[in-house]
Amino acid sequence: MSRPHDMGGRFGDGAVVPEPQGIPTLDEDWQARALALTLAAGSLGQWNLDISRHSRERLSPKDYARFSYFEKWIAALADLLVEKDVLRREELQGGGEGGPHALAGRALPASRVASVLAAGGPADRPIATPPRFERGQAVVTARPAGNRLVDGGHTRLPSYASGAQGYILKHHGAHVLPDSNAHGLGECPQHLYTVVFSATQFWSHPEHPDDEVTLDLWESYLEPA
């Protein structure tokens, strides 16, 4: 069921290497370029944030492991451009005719960068149904973790947190459901909750019995305990 991005709790990755405080310096120009290119291409309006995340998750496990962060971004961007019929495969190899693209009118001009970044993309939505759970209520996460709409599809319940019992800490109103939105099946907003779990729910050898992990989970990921 799993994909390579779902790595929470995994063993064997070695030490975390801290770096100086302040704004991190991207080591290479191409990393900044990859970041900017991804954001600019996103404003063509051919996909949403969930589709974009899922494109990175669908890299082969071998590519996901060997690519650095922004290499994942640029590979997933190229894949999306072809999947969404913005570019043809031969155009990625430098072929195809020149001239402006049918979507060229949507290209993000420098003058609109500030307003697009400032606007962001709020994920909260109105919803008619009342929340199923209340603060403090005990809940259990779905097991197995996985997209219930599309086999192998995008979901935001990590494997390590499936089938665990916790309690509702906070209700955030309704948010766009990634499991649906990543596949063009609509935003299907659901109530979103922060759920607290004891570390003992997830790990056979937790570091401390009082430690906790919280996750932000959509209503369909949860059942009453």
Binding site: W30, A34, A41, L81, L103, A107, A110
Partner: peptide, 24 residues
């Protein structure tokens, strides 16, 4: 790889290099 993709998208008018500079 990044340079190649930027070149393709710029040639087709899908990205404005000045917008990339602004984002960075």
């Amino acid at each position: 790889r990044v340079k190649a993709l930027e070149t393709i998208l710029t040639r087709k008018g899908l990205v404005d290099p000045a917008a990339l500079d602004e984002i960075i």
